[in-house]
Design a protein around this nucleic acid. Sequence first.
DNA 1: ATATAGGGTGTTATGTTATAACAATTAATA
DNA 2: TATTAATTGTTATAACATAACACCCTATAT
Lengths: 152, 152
Amino acid sequence: MRERHRHALCIKDALTRAEQVCTKRAIRLTPTRKKVLELIWQSHKPVKAYDLLAKLSTDGHIEKPPTVYRALDFLLENHLIHKIESSNAFIGCEIDHDELDSKFFVCGVCDEVKEVYEPKLDKTLLETSLKQGFTPNQTTIEIHGTCARCAK
Amino acid sequence: MRERHRHALCIKDALTRAEQVCTKRAIRLTPTRKKVLELIWQSHKPVKAYDLLAKLSTDGHIEKPPTVYRALDFLLENHLIHKIESSNAFIGCEIDHDELDSKFFVCGVCDEVKEVYEPKLDKTLLETSLKQGFTPNQTTIEIHGTCARCAK
DNA sequence: ATATAGGGTGTTATGTTATAACAATTAATA
DNA sequence: TATTAATTGTTATAACATAACACCCTATAT
């Protein structure tokens, strides 16, 4: 957890934003979807689908894969979470952005992921694309390394 | 296939480079590893591990997953191929570069992937990292969209 | 030439990640 | 309140990847 980081607020904010987005788009944040989003937001580390599945399951009832993958698909489509492709795991969306520009720093020591907003990088990416005659519509930008805290 | 693109030369060049790299590093490009590299280089589209496995198998003999994954691991470690994380597939390395800076354009129409060398993008990525206090050691940069030919 | 150490391969089994297909239920709407 | 569209439940399986151990080459040192 970051110093001076009140994570409970992160979770609360994320859920509030999700509610707003869903209301605005007239789509439903059903209990399962909300629960999955909450579970993902328990930390800033990406979460695996089958770990979510385990957490959704109780003594009495074991959830099956489609339950969690459907919730994940919904949350992904609505940009409430992202998938970290290089680790097959999911993380809450921290930023209000369009589809193109998700960029993640993945720390190999603490496993936390930070999503950044960086127009300059977007600009360079777009320029590079245009130079190739390429029309981008979705990017996977995942930078693995060591975060500032872990480097100390 | 690109216009004026003699793909047989691509394959030949790739294999020649691989031989050179292996000689230089005193490592062995065994028949299986070479065959896998050749199969990957059959096109500029990323290839799935189990498709390689099928191609390695003959009427008389079915190869098993470890055979192909070991060859892939070897080729990845020596930067002779890359993994496209967002599609769980593998592609020949087109560029002489250090570990940090693989960047791919993935066309959603023809499925071809182009690896680019773009120091300016590296520079911006590094600046963005430093701004976060982040020490990068490996990047996943995969831009999905439509390539120039397919856009016509 | 031959012992041996290390790298490479064969094989079985299993672990991990994700989706197809169809039935049943619930919510929105006419 | 009947209809329809969206959501969920359930079974099965597809797709992707590795662990573990036995065996076999091949390089090298004696």
